[in-house]
Design a protein around this nucleic acid. Structure first.
Lengths: 249, 249
DNA sequence: ACCAACATTTGAACGTGTTCAACTATTGCT
DNA sequence: AGCAATAGTTGAACACGTTCAAATGTTGGT
C-alpha cells in the first residue's frame, strides 16, 4: 500500500535539487500523474469510455501501478470531485462578497455550484451514479468522504453566518444557526439529485428550482419561531436526534 | 430483437395442444425461464455476485440467448422490481382495508413497502444504485418505467381517496386531491433513498423516519388552506408547472 | 559496502458483461 | 411441398476492471 496521501512522493521533491541530481532515475510523481491523465481523459471521453489502460498509458505507468495508488477506477473520481469543489469554493466566495440577504446568498452559493460543474454535467452524472451507491466510499454519507462533507457544510455555514438583516444584525436566530448549515447541505444534495436528472438545456430547470425554492426555505426558517409550529419542530428535532446514532456508515 | 413483451412465446402457448403436440421440439418459454433463474440467483448470491453465465446455465440457455431477450444484466432487475411491487400492492391493500385516518394510511402503505422489500435490502441496494442512474431505463423518471411509476402513483391515490374524517367525508380537500398522490410518491422516493442508505438493524431508522414525518406531512396538507401560505403554495405550483415541460426524459 | 526490509512497478492472467457472425428452427406464402 | 423471411439460439471472441506473483528500486541500519 502506498503512503496514504502521496507523502512519499512529495517528500522526495522537498528533498531538493541535490537529492534529485544525485538520483539519475528522477522520482516521478506517479500519483498526480495518474490523476492528471485520468481527469484529462474523463473530460475528453467521459468516465465510462475511459479505460484504465488508457489512463495508465497517458500517465506513462503500467495498469498495475495505477491500482497501487487507487483501489479502483471509481476512486479516481475523487480527484475530479476535489478539484471541482476547490473551484466552487473560490467562485462562491467571490459572489458572496457583497451579499447580505440570506436568500440571495443561498442562491449565489448553489448557483455557483451549478456554474462550476455545468461543463461536466454529463460526466458528473456518472460520478454521482457511483456516489449514490451506499456501499461506495464516494457516497456523501460514507466515512471516507467525511472531510469533503464537512467542507461542504462549512461552506453553507459561511452562507448563513454572513447573512444580515437591514440593521446589520445576524439574519438567523441563534437557536437555528448551528443546525441550519447541515440542513442547507441536505437541501443542496436534493438540488444536486435534481440537477443530475435534469435534461433541460444548460440545466436551466435546476436553476429555476433553486430560485423558486430558496425563498420558501428562508420563509420556512422564519416560521420556525411561530409558536404553533414549535411542537412539530421539536418533534422533528427529536426524530433527528434519535436516528442519528442509529446510522453507522 | 424479440417481440417487445414475450408475445411470441405466449402466443405459441395459446396456440394450444395441437400445435404443441405437432412440434416435437417443444417451445421453451425462454424469457420467463431466464427471469426465474436470475431472480433465484440474485436472492441467493446478490446481484453483482451473479454472473450472466450462471443465469444462462441455470435457465438452460446460452449466454447470447439471454442477451437476445434482455439488453443487459441491469434489465433483468426489472423482473425483480415487478414481482416485489405486486407483493407490495397486495400487502398494502390488506393493511389499508380497515384504516380511515390519512396518517395511518400513509404509514401503512409505506411500511408495507419496507416489509415487502426488507428481506431484499442488500440486493435492493444494488438495484437502486442502477435505478438512480439518470441514463438508465430503470430510473424512476425514465419513460420505460412509466407504467411502474403510474402504478405506484395510483397506489398513493388509493391511500388518499380512502381517507375519511370523523364524519365520513373525504379527508383531503378537492383542490389537493389530484396532485397529492404524486407528491406522496415523491415523498416515498425520498423515504426509499433514505432506506437504501439505512444501515441500522432491520432498517429500523427508516421506519422511525416514516412514523415521524408522516404526521408532519398530513399537518402540512392541512396548512395548505391557511391564507397566509396560499401565495407561497401558488408560487410552488407555478414553479412545478413551469419546470415539468422542461424535463424530457 | 552490504544487507534486510520496505516501496514501487510490471505485465500477464482472470473473470466479467457484452457482441457478433454463423447456424437452426419456425412461420407465412404460394 | 417448397421457399424465402423471420425468430431464436449458439459459443467463441472482445474489451474491460481487477489481481497477483515476480522484478526492480529505495531506504536505513551496521
Amino acid at each position: 500500500m502506498p503512503n496514504d496521501d502521496g507523502d512519499a512522493a512529495e517528500r522526495a521533491v522537498e528533498d531538493g535539487s541535490v537529492t534529485r541530481s544525485l538520483q539519475p532515475m528522477a522520482r516521478r510523481q506517479t500519483k498526480p500523474a495518474i490523476i492528471d491523465a485520468a481527469l484529462g481523459l474523463f473530460e475528453e471521453r467521459g468516465f465510462e469510455a475511459t479505460t484504465m489502460r488508457a489512463i495508465a498509458e497517458r500517465a506513462g505507468v503500467s495498469v498495475g501501478n495505477a491500482y497501487y495508488y487507487f483501489a479502483s477506477k471509481d476512486e479516481l473520481i475523487q480527484g475530479f470531485y476535489d478539484r471541482a469543489m476547490e473551484e466552487h469554493a473560490a467562485a462562491s466566495a467571490e459572489r458572496l462578497a457583497g451579499l447580505t440577504d440570506l436568500t440571495e446568498r443561498i442562491v449565489a452559493h448553489a448557483d455557483s455550484w451549478f456554474a462550476a460543474l455545468g461543463r461536466y454535467h454529463q460526466f458528473a452524472t456518472q460520478f454521482f451514479r457511483v456516489a449514490s451507491d451506499p456501499s461506495s466510499p464516494l457516497s456523501p454519507f460514507s466515512s471516507r468522504s467525511a472531510p469533503a462533507r464537512e467542507a461542504a457544510i462549512a461552506g453553507w455555514r459561511d452562507v448563513v453566518e454572513g447573512a444580515r438583516t437591514g440593521d446589520g444584525s445576524p439574519a438567523v436566530a441563534d437557536r437555528l444557526r448551528s443546525e441550519l448549515p447541515e440542513l442547507l447541505w441536505l437541501y443542496h444534495l436534493g438540488l444536486i439529485l435534481f440537477w443530475v436528472h435534469d435534461g433541460s438545456a444548460d440545466q436551466a430547470a435546476s436553476r429555476l428550482v433553486l430560485a423558486g425554492t430558496a425563498p420558501v426555505i428562508v420563509r420556512a426558517i422564519g416560521l420556525a419561531d411561530v409558536p404553533e409550529l414549535a411542537a412539530t419542530i421539536d418533534d422533528l428535532a427529536r426524530l433527528v436526534a434519535t436516528i442519528r446514532p442509529m446510522l453507522a456508515t
